[in-house]
Design a protein around this nucleic acid. Structure first.
Length: 116
DNA sequence: GGTCTGACCGGCG
DNA sequence: ACGCCGGCCAGAC
């Protein structure tokens, strides 16, 4: 059925996003847009953000490793506390200043490039 | 069932 | 450097 397929697709979308996020190595970060591009949604970065919003409570999804295209921690307000995201990154030696990843260029992990 | 909004992004003036 | 706009697609009302 069409409706069932739509639901299935939606589930896969969530799973796909989480799967990619889980592949981000410790100490590295990626962006919403990069994940979207990898999943074939060129401008679907907002969808990824939407999926991340639903990732609360999902085990093994390092949401703190997903930042925006500038290296800014735009999702920090959605964690337990606004500092949780920075704290977790710092624990991986990712230095944050003014809500922004230092040396973002070298910390960036591009799924398209790394996974194909 | 139209309209608004979003943990975004790139382009343009 | 900066603000604005359109695009993407699903959910809430």
């Amino acid at each position: 059925m069409a409706n069932r397929e739509t639901n299935k697709k939606r589930e896969n979308f969530f799973e796909d996003v989480y799967a990619v996020v889980q592949l981000i190595p410790r100490g590295r970060v990626t962006s919403y847009g990069a994940i979207a591009a990898y999943l074939g949604m060129k401008s679907g970065a907002r969808m990824v953000g939407w999926a991340m919003n639903a990732s609360h409570g999902v085990r093994g999804v390092p949401a703190h490793r997903v930042v925006n295209s500038q290296g800014l921690l735009t999702g920090r307000h959605h964690f337990e506390t606004p500092e949780t995201m920075e704290k977790r990154l710092l624990a991986e030696r990712v230095v944050i200043r003014k809500h922004q990843v230092i040396d973002f260029k070298n910390r960036f992990w591009d799924p398209l490039k790394e996974l194909g």
